[in-house]
Amino acid sequence: MPSLSVRRLDNETYERLRRRAENQGVSMEEEARRILKRAVAAPERISDLARELFGPAHGVTLELPPRDPHEPIHFEP
């Protein structure tokens, strides 16, 4: 299985990772694996990807155009 070393990690990030792992009851290595797995995982739904790329965090507000009600279509045999 591949491995990865992370060099030049600043003290604040290291401490936050340590506390996060402690809160989850796992090792720092396991917590780092979980974070990386979530960060690179494909979204479950396409709408999640759209929200991630174009959502409010990126200053985009999508508005749906108004819809006028219409008469239902009747099919005759």
Rank of each mutant, 00 (worst) to 15 (best):
G25M: 09
R18W: 08
P2E: 05
H58K: 15
P65Q: 11
V60T: 12
P72H: 11
R19P: 00
R7G: 04
E76L: 02
A41H: 08
L53P: 01
G25T: 11
L62H: 02
R34H: 08
L4I: 11
L9I: 12
V26R: 02
I35P: 03
Y14A: 10
T61V: 14
S3L: 04
D48S: 13
E29N: 14
P56Y: 09
V26P: 03
P65F: 06
A57N: 11
F75Y: 14
P2S: 09
A41S: 15
E63F: 06
A32N: 05
E44T: 13
Q24H: 13
P72G: 02
A41L: 12
F75L: 15
E71H: 09
E44C: 03
A57Y: 01
E44L: 12
R38G: 09
H70D: 10
S3W: 01
E12N: 02
E63A: 14
T61R: 14
A42I: 03
I46A: 15
P43R: 09
V26A: 03
L49K: 15
I35D: 00
V26N: 07
M1R: 12
R38Y: 08
D10V: 01
F75H: 11
A41G: 07
R34W: 07
A21G: 04
P72C: 00
A50K: 12
M28A: 06
E12A: 10
R38K: 14
L49Y: 15
A21V: 03
